[in-house]
């Protein structure tokens, strides 16, 4: 038999231990990244400590070298295009899926979500063979279409969850007040699930922005995206410009994930209010 205070201190020990382990795991995950990132501010040309001095020359290089600029532009165009297309397709699919029976819905849902669990290399090979027949290999539209495949599931999941919580009675109310089906969707349903749609679109963008394998298969020299350029940079030059590029990619991804989290909280709060 242990006294209450002994039991309490035991619980404390476990809690402290859990915190320590958590911190260690985070350090394990983040230290390698954190260790190299400062090198992007080095004034020297080698990826090594100690740094000879601090400068922003590698960021300048990044923003003036046409190869890096092209990669940045390609990433943006493909990411935005794929996110837009994923949003339209994913939202339509999520709305349409509401009208299905539970069995049909889970089958269609599984089919739409499949790209998330499918090995990317298999998809990349498939898309390469398929697109080469259509003349889409080595084109920006081809890459947008390919990334739409991996972006759509995020919108389906995100918008689908919001629609589950959406009260269909509101659509009936809108119609009883004289709204056409289109007006009911646009003025009543879309605003209610807008945070979830935006979050899904951002996820789709991030998925495209980070994607390497499909781009390696589909991109010609003119369609190289930022992560693939990074890959080439490590192979060819290995100067701190690579770290500067990585820094920019991390900032963009972290920024977007923060926005997604804020949107999630907002839509939870909105639901809680009702």
């Amino acid at each position: 038999m242990s006294s209450p205070s002994a039991r309490k201190s035991k619980a404390d020990i476990w809690r402290t231990l859990a915190s320590v382990i958590t911190v260690l795991v985070f350090l394990f995950l983040l230290l390698p990244i954190a260790a190299v990132l400062p090198l992007s501010f080095s004034s020297g040309s080698f990826l090594a400590y100690p740094m000879p001095g601090l400068s922003l020359r590698w960021y300048e290089e990044l923003l003036t070298n046409y190869k890096w600029l092209l990669a940045l532009k390609n990433s943006a165009v493909v990411g935005i295009g794929a996110a837009a297309l994923s949003t339209v397709l994913g939202l339509s699919a999520a709305i349409a899926m509401r009208g299905l029976g539970p069995r049909a819905r889970s089958i269609v849902n599984g089919f739409l979500i499949a790209p998330l669990v499918m090995p990317v290399i298999i998809m990349a090979v498939g898309l390469y063979l398929f697109f080469s027949n259509l003349g889409l290999v080595g084109t920006i539209p081809g890459m947008i279409l390919a990334h739409t495949v991996i972006g759509t599931p995020y919108v389906v999941i995100s918008a689908g969850a919001a629609l589950q919580n959406f009260d269909m009675q509101l659509i009936r109310a809108a119609k009883s007040l004289g709204a056409s089906p289109w007006m009911a969707y646009r003025r009543v349903m879309l605003p209610a699930i807008r945070p979830a749609i935006v979050a899904g679109a951002l996820f789709a963008f991030v998925a495209s922005f980070d994607e390497v394998v499909i781009v390696l298969f589909l991109a010609g020299p003119g369609q190289v995206t930022l992560p693939v350029r990074l890959f080439e940079g490590i192979r060819d030059e290995l100067t701190p410009v690579v770290i500067a590029a990585a820094m920019i990619m991390i900032m963009i991804s972290v920024g977007l994930m923060t926005v997604i989290e804020l949107l999630r909280r907002k839509s939870v709060a909105r639901r809680g209010m009702e």
Binding site: R172, A174, S176, L177, S180, M183, A192
Partner: peptide, 26 residues
């Protein structure tokens, strides 16, 4: 035909005035 629902079915993201204006805008 006007309809009043048991759950009220007010549009949560619109103000009271916007809710009442909705059928007129339609």
């Amino acid at each position: 035909i006007g309809m009043v629902f048991q759950s009220y079915a007010l549009f949560p993201h619109m103000t009271i005035a916007e809710n009442i204006a909705f059928p007129l805008q339609a």
